[in-house]
Amino acid sequence: MQTQELKNVASQVRRDILRQVHACQSGHPGGSLGCTDLLVGLYFNTMKLAQDANGNVVFNMSGNQEDVFYLSNGHISPVMYSVLARRGYFPVKELATFRQLNSRLQGHPTPHEHLEGIRIASGSLGQGLSVAIGTAQAKKLSNDTSTVYCLMGDGEQNEGQVWEAAMYAPHHKVDNLIAFIDENGQQIDGPTEKVMSNRDLEAKYKAFGWQVLRMDGNDMEEVINTLAHAKSLLGQGSPIMILMKTEMGAGVDFMMGSHKWHGVAPNDQQLADALAQLNETLGDY
């Protein structure tokens, strides 16, 4: 896809995020908006996904012979659900059921209700990178040359399990893995710097044996180019980490620049103000 087309998809995804969260008056818009460009870039451009003869995506739990993405920071489920639906994994109108009783779109993603596109439950932070590494190793064992991707939050880096996984992947030469950290500098109790400083993530991951890249996660062109560059570095004995600077709430002016919108839904007026800033490119559900 051309960059402009990807930007159009991202605009629609941002609308979907806001409308999902608004409808049930709960959920996490801030991180979802910040990570929209990455997920759109991955699913609509970079990832090699299993498709049927008509070119429609098909979901296989195993993910064999296709690229696999894991969302470790499961609270940003609205962006995950929108991107999966818009990519064709399940009906877009199902987004209207987000967080409601008897929905497959649970507050945090889960395979428990058999939602196409979700392979593992996340929501309890710090567990996704381990799962991604395991899948990457399964691919190696099966001579499957596709790639595994995993997104984490910067607050999520507080969890010890992240660093157990960070140690393991280079040790086992898991070089078919590209991970991301959403460096929006925010978590629930305030700026990450104040709550529990990550200090220098680049130096830390390098010391653990990762190749580390940086990108502006809200610049679609840069996202696409950095992903392409990262792929060219695969197969060289070490996993790749992309430190992604984003703006929490990106795309909606009054949601940017603080942690206030981490887990708060907009009211009717705020929704209208936010939607006015985002073009309806693919049609609202």
């Binding site: 959920g27 649970q106 507050g107 996340s122 929501g123």
Partner: peptide, 8 residues
């Protein structure tokens, strides 16, 4: 706790 769902 409601909407956050089973993970929580």
């Amino acid at each position: 706790l409601g909407e956050d769902g089973a993970t929580h």
